[in-house]
Amino acid sequence: MSAGDWLTGSDAAFDRRRKLKGAVFAGACGAATLVGVVSLGVLLVDVIIDGIASLDWRFVTALPSRFPERAGIKVALAGSVWILVLTALISFPLSVAAAIYLEEYANRGWVSKTIQTNIANLAGVPSIVYGILGLALFVRGLGLGRSVLSGALTLSLLIMPVIIIAAQEAIRAVPPTIREAAYGLGATRWQVVSRQVLPMALPGILTGTILALSRAVGETAPLIMVGAVGFIAFTPEGPMSPFTVLPLQIYQWVSRPQDEFRAIAAAGIIVLLLLLLSMNAVAIVLRNRYSSKT
């Protein structure tokens, strides 16, 4: 008697139906995955078609203008670079220190548990709420005004939870045997952390930091709150200068009804995406080098 004989006709049909259902489901899941991929493709193509004609060297180096054909992104690009550098200088040391404390120094008591839960919750707070905090605390409270520094401080608070969580993961991935060997040789805790743990965790920490910074570079809403709006005619000269950034310049062009402004908004988006893409590329290179070593 062969294996299939005991199947009656309806059982065989039932089996076929199950197989068919399975194939339909597999196809549906594949199609669902494609929705995300295709959306990304359509978005990129749409932006490139709209903006490529306006994108040239003059556009990148020209000062802002009320006339779309003369307007450029020099001031916004410089503002974004200022924000990027200042935010990195503020958020990186603070976040890494916090991660070292939580992973290497803290006992597992309620204090560190509270800090940890709090960091997880902060990572989910909408960016515009950080903007409100920045407005009340830095712009008004500390009297820093509508300056690059206010913007960088606000964005630092925004991305610190992200960097802390990434740095903690990188530190946790350092094998405990390394620490034990160093302690066994009589190293103090700080010597273990600074000479063994940190160098090994650094590529992972840097990857997380760059990804968080690229989020900061793409942020718009919190910077509107701290007042990086309006017509800024010159590149920032220092941390206390007024400023605007690329995403904000794009927003201001998008909100005009004329098609000419839409076109230069798209050109601005291309520059912004190229900036983010190169930051991500650096992060990916770091990650690959790191994972091949261990």
């Binding site: 995955t33 995300g36 991929v37 959306s39 990304l40 359509v42 978005l43 749409d46 932006v47 709209d50 990804l211 690229s214 989020r215 570079v217 793409g218 942020e219 718009t220 809403a221 995403p247 794009i250 927003y251 998008v254 839409r262 908004a265 798209a266 988006i269 912004l272 995406l273 983010l276 991500n280 990916i284």
Partner: peptide
């Protein structure tokens, strides 16, 4: 291949999504 593409989708600034919604 798919995971990095979805990561890029997550990394696109929201102002760009706004542009896409309004113009496309």
């Amino acid at each position: 291949i798919l995971k990095p593409v979805l990561e890029i989708l997550a990394g696109i600034p929201t102002v760009v999504y706004g542009y896409f919604a309004l113009t496309f």
